[in-house]
Design a protein around this nucleic acid. Structure first.
Lengths: 385, 385
DNA sequence: GATTCATGGAGAAACGGCACTTCTCGGCCA
DNA sequence: TGGCCGAGAAGTGCCGTTTCTCCATGAATC
């Protein structure tokens, strides 16, 4: 029974304080080998149920908790996923500034936990030492800029990276995004049908994918239908600037009779600006903005919003990432080209696989002169690119 | 120069694929020992600058990144802090449902990163295997319920725990909270001064500290000033129930002429209910609610809010936790009583040290019949209990 | 009676750093 | 010339698991 005590002969029996029980202690107490304890607790090996349950019991009694650090070192898996937020401008950390991020992060956290992983939130610009101090099994990146050094390094060191937002020129494993072009075109069509003759756009100055694709879709549409573009830009991370830009847009001589605002607070800003100029919504001005907030259901009038469905995005991104992590063929070394299961491998060295998720237009009073309260799905269903 | 190659004799030179460079590789390439590499990179030991910089250069060239797992195993520090959210009811994960949590988490993340730690978000109810799979240096717990088994286990295993919200009967290292009683009394006084004769309360059914203390403060005040309590309760995690409860409160025969709502959406709910009953705000009904949202600056009329200052709370909690983590006297084994530096030790076995943070009442039109736009700080400054 | 085979389990090698201890060697002073 | 000192660097374990290899043993088969 006590034969196993100190069996490895490596631990000096003295100098051992009242620290947590290790696997050796359990082995000694149960009268079995370390191997057997490990097997019993992890459901591996060939052991009779009797031994298994006895070991479990002893471990329980001793309050044994396997060391996460040791396990990570040995197995090469930490169960940790990074969630990287690219920061805007000089702001140190603007995470959760927009409801989109908060929702997306929440869904991502939830999805990760559901599969046994935990999420670590790390701004892309944070101190490098923090990054390299954490063993990550993979990383979710929100809207990485072109040539992001962080993403490059992660990818180079073999860590799977999945991005929310189609990456411009980043070597990611996979990506997920909304079909922003389809969403914008859907809104413009919707406004046209409601009687808009000149549709304006309130957009941002930043170069992220969302802003860029949405703006391009607008400009393209203008070109096709022969409308002169009417838009104002502002730094999206600055809420005060949004109000000013909204005001500018409605103060123009070529004032639009309908506006789509790309960012969450634009609805409120535009409504306030309209009020200042004595414009009635929707009679004089049709309004739509992109937002995840339901305050727009309660404004006067309620405002039509485009939802990017961040929950779905967050869930999808995490699931893709974990698929990539667990698809690693650990038998044959770590060849990056083999890091991902077949369905993630693009033929040759083509672009990484991407998934487009549908958006949802929640139609309210601000964008129609007739009956409100209808939901229109985006024209295109999700699909591979 | 090459003498150090394979010096430890433990690594089979073959079977080594194109994996990441380890410290041994760096040592071999730089012609020094492993020890020297470690010392050079960590700024320890006695090494001439020349050696130091040469080793750094070689490490850089080889793209060497120390293994976080190995470092954690050896040093006992992971650089990871848990942020535990106690979930409400059956909801799997209601994190960021309230702006308070989102703000608090953001501040906590930021504060942690500023000190070289990263935050892991973990709901208290999540699978135990997730918890035990992660090496945490400490944990922040949001409003732990009495006898929380999770907190008990963490504390027992020597992990420092700091709670946001005064713990009822939990062995935490320290805690931080708002002075909820002072805040509520301040609001009640404020409403009284504005002319309220009968102040109602919209509160929750849950037993968390915030709800309990606030409600008790209200009831105590009623007793002292001789007003019959007028309040309605509802499950705070259910937004729809809030609207119903607000309606109930204003439908009572003893209808209050002023209401304080404890939860974020209450302002909107109460405003809508007032509208339904033809009550003008603030003329017929004075309104205050607790919220971190600035939408209440733009409602009609703007609504007075109490801010709990979650940024400050999040920052403080994390700083206390990291102080506790880094204050560990690692020389003398792990005696829980010595886990924390002197200023955290309460004499004898008294309650854990707590810090009260001030709240801020943002006065707007809804709570006064005269001039709006003043800010009143909570009566008491922060201090130890 | 000698060979398979399945069962149950032990032993030891990593995993990749870092803390602690020890060694070497040249300079300096008595 | 011997001894001491300290800078500079190397050696040695060990952190606590998992996992791979391999050994007994007894039963069954040839």
């Amino acid at each position: 029974m006590t034969a196993a005590a100190n069996q490895s002969g490596r631990r000096p029996t003295t100098s051992r304080r009242l620290e947590r029980a290790g696997i050796r202690d359990v082995a000694a107490a149960a009268g079995v080998s370390i191997t057997t304890v490990s097997d019993a607790l992890n459901g591996k090996g060939r052991l009779p149920d009797e031994t298994r349950s006895r070991v479990r019991e002893v471990a329980e009694r001793l309050g044994y908790r396997p060391s996460a650090a040791a396990r990570t070192l040995r197995t090469g898996r930490s169960g940790l996923i990074g969630l990287t937020v690219t920061t805007y401008g000089e702001e140190p950390f603007t995470f959760t500034e927009f409801a989109y991020f908060a929702e997306m992060a929440r869904a991502a956290t939830s999805a990760a936990l559901g599969r046994g992983y935990a999420l670590v939130v790390l701004p892309a610009s944070s101190r490098h030492d923090v990054w390299s101090n954490i063993a990550l099994d993979g990383t979710v990146v929100i809207d990485p800029p072109d040539q992001d050094p962080l993403v490059s390094e992660l990818y180079r060191s073999g860590v799977p990276v999945v991005s929310d937002g189609k990456p411009g020129n980043c070597p990611v494993t996979a990506w997920v995004d909304n079909d922003h072009e389809a969403a914008v075109l859907g809104i413009l069509d919707h406004l046209s049908e409601a009687g808009a003759r000149r549709i304006g756009l309130l957009t941002g100055t930043s170069t992220d994918t969302y802003t860029r694709l949405s703006t391009e879709a607008y400009l393209g549409w203008c070109g096709r239908v022969g409308q002169e573009p009417v838009y104002e830009t502002y730094p999206a991370h600055d809420p005060a600037a949004g109000a000013v830009a909204a005001d500018r847009l409605l103060a123009r001589p070529d004032r639009p009779d309908a506006v789509y605002g790309l960012f969450d607070p634009n609805g409120t800003d535009l409504l306030a600006a309209a009020r200042r100029y004595g414009l009635r919504v929707p009679d004089d001005l049709l309004l739509v903005c992109c937002s995840e907030s339901d305050v727009y259901a309660g404004t006067e009038p309620p405002i039509t919003t485009l939802s990017l469905k961040p929950r779905r995005i967050g869930t999808t991104v995490v699931n893709l990432l974990i698929d990539a992590i667990e698809g690693v063929d650990s038998g044959t070394g770590v060849d990056i080209a083999r890091l991902f299961p077949p369905r993630f491998r693009t033929a040759g060295t083509g672009p990484p696989p991407g998934t487009l998720m549908p958006t949802e237009l929640i139609v309210r009073a601000s964008s129609q002169r007739r009956s409100p309260r209808t939901t229109i799905n985006a024209p295109r269903p999700p699909g591979e690119v």
